[in-house]
């Protein structure tokens, strides 16, 4: 039936081949197009910051000049790199554990009503309890090492993973599950081939929230009791009224969060290209 196909065909070749044929130059242009607006805003903000310090509106020990902060970043690079590495390590470990534990909890909740009843109140309780209030207890229990920071990062980051995981796993089309049943598929196979990939878009948006929260968890942990890490440096700098170091440290913390966020976004692009590219709507049921 060639006439049916020719009528239906147009969207497929375009979406299929256009990305593959894009040249390197076009990619650069596309990247610049995405970047120039926030870059311009950033430049304006830094300029405004510089103007304020140049006019000496505030004393230098309260607001350091951008140049001083840049100097601090360069001169103290070895010390700052070491502390950034510590915080990165705590954050990433906490995030990965949160992702694993959160997914596991989501699966248990979706597959077992009994476990849902048992787990859900506990998870909610763990969420509403002020994490900063637990930090001192964790330090008492686990000392000044990375352990309490990792645990804090996990505690803060795992809730969005659970919520998005549950939403994703529950969003499976019931007809797909019926179909799977008529195929005689095992629960595990249905999970692996239908439910889990279907949950990925939800899950990844939860992971994006989680990774930024994990940074917060690690830094808060360092505030309470640490001898290394960006949070520790921040306390040190504020104690010495070293505002340049304080700002430099702040910039590094934000950069860490941004880099980790972008990494999850890249993972998202790689894992679910089918979802990101889903623009033409799938025909919906009529009755």
């Amino acid at each position: 039936m060639p006439e049916v196909i020719s009528r239906a065909a147009p969207p497929a070749p375009e979406t299929d081949e256009a990305p593959a044929r894009r040249t390197a130059a076009q990619r650069v242009i596309q990247l610049l197009d995405a970047v120039w607006r926030p870059a311009l805003l950033l430049v304006l903000l830094v300029f405004g910051w510089w103007a304020i310090t140049a006019a000496e509106v505030f004393p230098a020990y309260l607001v350091p000049a951008p140049g001083d902060v840049a100097n601090e970043l360069i001169e103290e690079r070895e010390m700052l790199a070491r502390h950034t590495w510590v915080t990165t390590y705590e954050t990433v470990l906490g995030f990965l554990l949160a992702a694993a534990i959160g997914m596991l909890a989501a699966v248990l909740i979706v597959y077992s009503p009994t476990l849902e009843k048992a787990l859900y109140p506990l998870i909610l309780f763990a969420q509403v309890i002020p994490k900063i209030a637990i930090a001192p207890i964790l330090v008492v229990w686990f000392g000044f090492g990375p352990m309490p920071k990792v645990i804090l990062a996990v505690l803060i980051a795992f809730f969005p993973v659970v919520v998005s995981g549950v939403a994703g796993l529950r969003s499976t089309d019931p007809e797909l599950l019926d179909l799977s049943a008529t195929m005689g598929a095992s629960r595990w196979k249905t999970f692996r081939k239908i439910r889990f990939p279907n949950a990925l878009p939800h899950l990844l948006s939860g992971l994006k929230v989680a990774v930024t929260l994990a940074v917060v968890g690690a830094v808060v942990g360092e505030f309470v009791g640490a001898d290394e890490g960006l949070g520790y440096v921040l306390l040190l700098a504020s104690g010495n009224l070293n505002s340049s170091l304080l700002f430099a440290d702040l910039i590094l913390m934000s950069a860490l969060g941004v880099v980790l966020f972008v990494m999850v976004e890249v993972a998202e692009k790689l894992l679910i290209p089918w979802h990101a590219s889903r623009r033409q709507g799938v025909p919906l049921t009529t009755s």
Binding site: D173, E175, L176, D178, L179, I194, P197, N198
Partner: peptide, 11 residues
């Protein structure tokens, strides 16, 4: 079994 909607895996 064929459903009213195609029920295909999007990915």
């Amino acid at each position: 079994f064929a459903f009213q909607r195609a029920a295909l895996l999007e990915w």
